[in-house]
Design a protein around this nucleic acid. Structure first.
Lengths: 339, 339
DNA sequence: AACAATAACTAAACCGATTTAGTTATAAAG
DNA sequence: CTTTATAACTAAATCGGTTTAGTTATTGTT
């Protein structure tokens, strides 16, 4: 299995490297290379399973046919799913995906963006920490193709595919209100992500529209690093205070799972005493006790559209920005109180 | 943000490209370059955030500092978790990870292995379909560094990190027997993966050791492509036949989730009528109704050890094969019938 | 016969870095 | 004074492919 090089083919067939390269890159006709020579080259390359060194190709052409994907954490169900769809779509178009997890660290994310550029990726798909405005600006300044997913920079004109977080929690909260709930709590992450803010505002908007005054004590914030430890205290506050809640909307699936664990620990009956809704879901949310109502995101659409937009961007087929805001879907299960 | 090249530094500082390259690669001292010149170069490179073109580096050095990861499906919780640990461990050692999903297709896997080699990855970590013996042999023949995870080729001497599937299901089945279950079913995938076979044999061994004759009618096989559709019929057979089961061991987490959905649909009470154990688990198995007893695998250890072994392999620090068989852990929850 | 066009290739530069094989000035030793 | 060693660099080849800029033989036209 000695490595076969393009120059070896040239030598074997008594033609130049150039001729072999042109033929293998479908440029034989336009360069007037005879059909006989083309056929000999193609046959030899096929028979010997020749495949070019992609590093050399990338260096030579200035394109690596690689896409960089930067997400918060590949182990997170939601991002793993998106990554899978992105991989599939990109692969179908001849691109390989290099992935990296930022762990929501803006500095790390900045380094990852640089590292991807050093590897000459042809484009980037980023679910950003939203704290790298200057990195994003730098990418824009050099017209480097990228698409944001899940989170975008509202003050910047960029390509992105996100979901309507505001409408998502708004609809869910409306649903809870329709079910007769009027003391609705909201558990979210400490400020930092615009996405979480949108989810909060959507929840608040539904309350206001229903004539319910948003109560500061019904909104709990936990830190991403210690949400498990902090969840106990927050749930206790929400369900045991003088103004205790009769429903809770969680801004992420992992907060919902942690919250449900605490509710069970406190022997709070769900949904009888407190209804529960989760933004996004884990694989087995239909099997939990009770099955959890979720605001689900179209991971496959996000992934597919991000790749398609990026391809157009890389081929210079678009000018201006493409902004896609997809709808979430409220998947009703027992946790919100429906029969 | 014009791209800065090594030759630009050389020109600015009036030294040769060679000098710059040697200094930036910590070879200044051994090549007797003066401290003054070294300092000027390091300062300039740092001040201008110079980073080398990794494609050129890889081509030149014959090392790309990239690891290829081939797994069945990045969207699967178990593999996403392993991928996350692999990424973290590899990154800490200066390596970038390129991932690809084989979707259990041996032909696709063979192509992915080739594709990874074309990209000059320095090593491979593969959770193999187990049907590419010749590709594995070819890798061995050229002394290409790779580590198998999750599945290995029993007839071949390779480096691998796997769990003890046999002991996993054996212990779980023993536990069910200790709980008084004696008609224990087993739901698995149609033959193809040695891993599934080991899980089946472990289950059977526990039965035999307890003086229970394995009953062919208690073993159900579903296809990977259509397990959801097939699960209904198989569960019905297991719980409604004249020799119905009082427990079921599922050979994967997704089969367990699908099986539990069917048991619920048939109004079978778990664990009262039929106990349930799953090999591996989904994130919310502690919240399901009932919480599911699982044979869990140490994803972080698998990922970490695979990377460490691969590093040693790439650095030529080992000869012969390193075979690691890690223990599973039985996580008892309500589904197996414990109070 | 001379000139122009074209088929069918080719050599060499290029990509950006690293490695190999020198070169040169200076100092020390014989 | 001559020879040797060494500090401190350098030019060019190399990596494997692609692109640029030719070269040459043949044919057709004037």
């Amino acid at each position: 299995m000695k490595r076969l090089f393009l120059k070896d083919i040239a030598k074997e067939l008594n033609v130049s490297k150039t001729t072999v390269s042109l033929v293998l890159n479908n440029k034989g006709d336009e360069n007037k290379i005879s059909q006989d020579t083309q056929q000999r080259i193609l046959a030899y390359a096929k028979e010997h399973n020749y495949v070019p060194n992609q590093l050399a190709r990338g260096l030579s052409r200035g394109k690596s046919e690689t896409i960089g994907l930067i997400i918060p954490n590949i182990s997170d169900v939601f991002y793993a799913r998106i990554a899978g769809f992105i991989e599939r779509q990109a692969k179908g178009l001849g691109y390989t995906v290099i992935f990296s997890s930022s762990y929501e660290d803006p500095q790390k994310e900045g380094e990852l963006i640089k590292s991807m550029l050093d590897r000459q990726v042809d484009g980037l798909i980023v679910a950003s920490t939203q704290k790298n405005q200057s990195e994003i600006d730098a990418l824009k300044n050099i017209n480097f193709p990228f698409v944001l997913i899940d989170r975008h920079y509202p003050d910047r004109e960029t390509d992105y595919v996100i979901v309507d977080n505001f409408e998502g929690t708004k609809k869910a909260t409306e649903h809870l209100i329709d079910q007769g709930r009027n003391k609705i709590g909201f558990v979210t992450l400490k400020p930092g992500l615009e996405v979480m803010q949108q989810r909060l505002v959507g929840y608040q908007d539904a309350l206001i529209n229903a004539g319910i005054k948003p109560d500061k004590n019904h909104v709990s914030e936990v830190s991403r690093e210690n949400f498990m430890e902090e969840m106990g205290l927050e749930i206790k506050k929400l369900v045991e205070s003088s103004s205790s809640v009769d429903a809770i909307v969680f801004s992420t699936h992992y907060l919902a799972a942690a919250g449900l664990r605490e509710l069970k620990r406190l022997n709070v009956e769900v949904p009888k005493e407190v209804a529960v809704v989760s933004f996004d879901e884990l694989n087995a949310f239909d099997l939990t006790d009770p099955p959890i109502t979720s605001i689900t995101q179209p991971a496959s659409e996000i992934g597919r559209q991000a790749v398609d937009i990026l391809m157009d961007k890389m081929e210079g087929k678009t000018n201006g920005s493409i902004e896609r805001i997809l709808e979430t879907k409220l998947t009703i299960r027992k946790s919100c109180g429906v029969a």
